[in-house]
Design a protein around this nucleic acid. Structure first.
Lengths: 232, 232
DNA sequence: CGAGGTGTTGAAAGTGCTCAAATGGCGTGG
DNA sequence: CCACGCCATTTGAGCACTTTCAACACCTCG
């Protein structure tokens, strides 16, 4: 029940429904590298990430792997499986160890019909996702690699307008590179260019931003979003 | 009323509601180049495109224009404005002349709460959009320019599995280039490379594909979608 | 200490972009 | 009917960025 309340989406359900949902859900622990489901698997649960990170990937015809997303605590995975064709669109793989709450499909689907507010909340969630995807697409064509990395970093800064900030990358740089649509080598070079040109300090996965505004200025020049442009 | 029935989304409304909706809607004609709304305008209607083409664009901070989408007959514009913050996320501009049906905001919003099936239909629509956006994003990093153009052409072929097909680009090549995230010059060169390598014949905006399967093979190698990968 | 995974660096090639100029279609006005 | 100008498109040349392939450094773990 504790975790359920934290989710803005589930908050649109009446608390009686939340109670039932909590009773029918169960915790599932996952390890780094563990495959939680395959692309096209029929879903029987929807997952709320409680801890750790997971990657959502697709296999390409030539055997490669395309990273569609990397998600962490608070994210709900598999909402689209509530609707036809009820299948996971991606493989889901742990990239750290962690835990998620498996919520039963059937109950959520019944709530979708029963409570318009729930459906509307989900709709709003997907509308926002759509918007962010479009923004991301714009970024891919208008931003350079260092800018894309900087944009990602800015989304991790908690107190956006402060002069300085520090953060720690929660997963591998090579995975991050794939998420941002670039090669690991490009990522490495772009990050060090960002260091030189926007005043960053790098210590492995730990990054210190000495001037958030300067970074923002470096990053957001050709972008149509309002900083911080990816609202959550 | 005629146009309303054609839309799968609106079909989820009971016919009584459709009747009311039809009564409250009105036709609006637009010209090429005409600006129908600005980014961040508060919306009072949602539009169903009856005829012609429109582009959805965002202004970038440096004064440039980012094309988010180009849409034609049957597309509904501004669904996201049914939810907070009730504003168009893009400017909407005619790229041909045409007409659209302006449907009142208030009524649609009331239906959203009244008919779960309507909300669920919208949800499904956005889920599909999300999926297509992800696919498009994957394309941007895994496909070359000629492949991206080929992929776009394949989506225009009506009878996908035939040996040959012909089609006509419904709007400017330079706009198409922007939609696909490339420069007009790159588009031009990429298209002529596609001509050479995948057996196309070009006559201005008219394109003849002599072997759809060959084109498909040329295009879809590194992609994770199932052809035709952008389901509508 | 050695092995494997992760990240960095170097050099060369590929791809798309920028700037600039040429081509071609089309409508207007002579 | 032809000349002109406008616009979209194409073509050319050089450049910037990203990728690729390869080698190396670093760290952790056995």
């Amino acid at each position: 029940m504790d975790g359920l309340q934290g989710s803005a989406l589930l908050a649109s359900l009446p608390s009686s429904a939340l109670q039932v949902l909590a009773g029918q859900s169960h915790l599932r622990v996952f390890e780094s590298g563990q495959i939680l489901c395959h692309q096209f698997d029929v879903a029987h649960t929807v997952w709320l990430v409680m801890d750790g990170w997971l990657k959502l990937t697709r296999e390409t015809l030539d055997g490669g792997e395309a990273v569609w997303d990397v998600v962490g605590e608070g994210t709900i995975i598999g909402l689209e499986t509530l609707l036809s064709p009820f299948k996971y669109p991606t493989r889901v793989v742990g990239v750290t160890q962690g835990a998620l709450l498996a919520m039963p499909h059937g109950f959520l689907r019944s709530q979708l019909e029963a409570h318009p507010a729930f459906a509307v909340a989900l709709l709003g969630h997907h509308v926002k996702n759509n918007h962010n995807d479009r923004l991301e697409m714009e970024h891919r064509s208008h931003q350079t690699a260092p800018q894309r990395i900087g944009c990602f970093l800015l989304r991790f800064v908690k107190t956006p307008l402060d002069g300085e900030a520090s953060l720690e990358l929660p997963f591998d740089k090579s995975l991050l590179a794939a998420l941002l649509g670039m090669q690991p080598e490009t990522f490495s070079r772009a990050l060090s260019r960002l260091k030189d040109e926007a005043g960053l300090q790098l210590h492995g996965p730990r990054i210190f931003i000495s001037d958030v505004r300067a970074l923002q200025k470096y990053v957001c020049g050709g972008c149509s979003g309002i900083y911080p442009c990816h609202g959550k």
